[in-house]
Design a protein around this nucleic acid. Structure first.
Lengths: 223, 223
DNA sequence: GAGATAATCGTACGGTCATATGGTTTCGCG
DNA sequence: CGCGAAACCATATGACCGTACGATTATCTC
């Protein structure tokens, strides 16, 4: 057998290079040559690991959104362990989608770049749809779990709340990126946005938690 | 004096052609050659009326957002004339920003395409910022007028409400485009979104209107 | 250690795009 | 009329990009 290399590692290195380029200068800057240079490989090698540029870009997009979701899941698990209220956990978790530091700003830029691409690329659109559905489903699940533990009124419409909250989070993300310096009544926008999100969460999670359902972070079942 | 042509008309014809192309197939499809063909002119003529492609695209973007704002203003004026409540007028007006028919879908696609471009182009970003600020300012103004006529509690924070409402509208627009078929508790998403917006408006416009201030639609003063 | 094969590289090819340039047509006005 | 300038056109230019392809290198196995 011949020379070997860690296939997944190479793909990750290349994807990371593309990730950096897209975050720094947009999709147009992520040419095959630029990605190869950034990764420290030749163009031919990038081609060796990705059959086409589209495949590479889709891989990067998937990777980025999955990274975000995983980080949120981790925060949820930690909040769970610390016995925090569902509302408090969500307040922290959802802010992972906001451009509040370099890492999240990069993810936001990538998300928005691919969002535009999704308008004309069915494959990218599918990932965007999937991700959005995932976020909504997790929120809905959290609300439903809130019912079981007493944080949420039993007649609350979880799906409706999920649509509302995810829309608010997405819209605030755009504003935060566009006008980070903006102030609302002397509060910087990041603070104001967090307040608004908390307020909206309080509108749903009106009660106090009586017990913790350790399963509420489980993956959504499609039953 | 030499041959004459309606300069503004030509620019509008070219911009319309570009508008159609971007709406139909994205910014990448709007090449100089494609725009010229769509408009029925030669490439040289397009160059004659726009010094660069960037100038053309910025012109198209400006035109599109201004068109949206004008349409909203018109709806507001009509609602004013019909003595409708501020909340009702806003419910109608803000939906102009949602991709609910071909025209608005086209505008949404253009808005999102340029939104991505704004991440790396300061000039485009400036227009996006301007537009967002305009929308927010109009909402804040409407809320303040609501205070004068009794629809809004006097201690309501108008700026805060404007940030919240504009974020919700923007986020719902994305969901509406991404998953128009989505249903929330047996309601189609467009209906559910309108309900959600109305609900949020009702959260701000809690009272009844006692009189109409005919000036509340005036352009925002920067005093 | 030899050869087989994956890993890696460099480059060439075909296409597209924005822009530059020079020419042609049209028409207002003296 | 005729001429000059703007309106308009066709094509050349130079750059860049995604991909194809052949060559080279390194390492695992026997």
């Amino acid at each position: 057998m011949p020379r070997t290399a860690d296939h997944d590692l190479r793909r990750a290195q290349i994807a990371d290079a593309a990730h950096r380029l897209i975050a720094h200068a947009g999709l147009d800057a992520a040419t095959m040559a630029a990605v190869a240079r950034e990764a420290g490989f030749s163009v031919g090698l990038v081609q060796h690991y990705f059959q086409s540029k589209d495949e590479l870009l889709l891989f990067v997009y998937r990777r980025t959104t999955e990274g975000q979701l995983e980080r949120i899941m981790k925060l949820v698990a930690e909040g769970e362990a610390a016995q925090r209220t569902i509302a408090a956990i969500m307040l922290t978790g959802l802010q992972e989608l906001w451009p509040l530091d370099d890492r999240r700003r990069a993810e936001y830029r990538i998300g928005r770049a691919f969002h535009a691409r999704s308008l004309d690329s069915p494959t990218v659109a599918a990932v965007a749809k999937e991700t959005a559905a995932m976020v909504r489903a997790q929120i809905a699940r959290a609300v439903n779990n809130g019912k079981h533990c007493g944080e949420v009124e039993p007649d609350t419409d979880a799906d409706r709340a999920a649509v509302r909250l995810s829309a608010l989070v997405e819209g605030l993300a755009d504003q935060l990126y566009r006008e980070p310096e903006q102030t609302v009544n002397a509060h910087p926008l990041p603070t104001a946005a967090a307040d608004l999100l908390q307020e909206s969460l309080t509108g749903v999670f009106t009660g106090e938690c009586h017990h913790h359902d350790p399963d509420w972070t489980d993956p959504v079942k499609t039953d």
